[in-house]
Amino acid sequence: MGEFEPNIVAFVCKWCTYTAADLAGTSRIQYPPNVKIIRLMCSGSVDPIFVVKALSQGADGVLIGGCHPGDCHYVSGNYKARRRILILKTILQNVGFEADRVWIRWISASEGKYFATVITEMVEQLKKMGPSPLKTAWDI
């Protein structure tokens, strides 16, 4: 087996972060291929249950990407997402799961380069953390 390659699931909004990922691609910016992108209409439509489901099914990390505060296409979706993900991370931390495996980042449509940076940073951090303990736990 080679070096541990983290598995990242990214829930991103259609208007900003997904467009940024697209821009990264069309601009031929390189970033690690460890991420599986799931496009939603808004970061506010990321139900925390799907973050937990992804983690319990073996994702090493989950990224939630949305528009910068104030820029939400639906006015306030990302503000609501911010509270929800904060609640989720607090719960995860307190049930003994490393909350640092869940990232939330504001990445606008024009920030293709920043999207690549975030993925690179996340992969680096997850490599340091190692595989998620839920990946091998059978009794969940």
């Binding site: 949305g66 505060p69 104030g70 306030s76 503000y79 609501k80 911010r82 509270r83 929800r84 993900i85 904060l86 609640i87 939330i104 980042r105 504001w106 920030e111 380069k113 920043y114 940076t117 975030v118 940073e121 951090q125």
Partner: peptide, 20 residues
Amino acid sequence: QSTFKEDEFPEVGLGPKSKA
């Protein structure tokens, strides 16, 4: 969960490294 403040939790969503 049913409300929010615009200026709360400013640190949430910012990366460890400065934006490139």
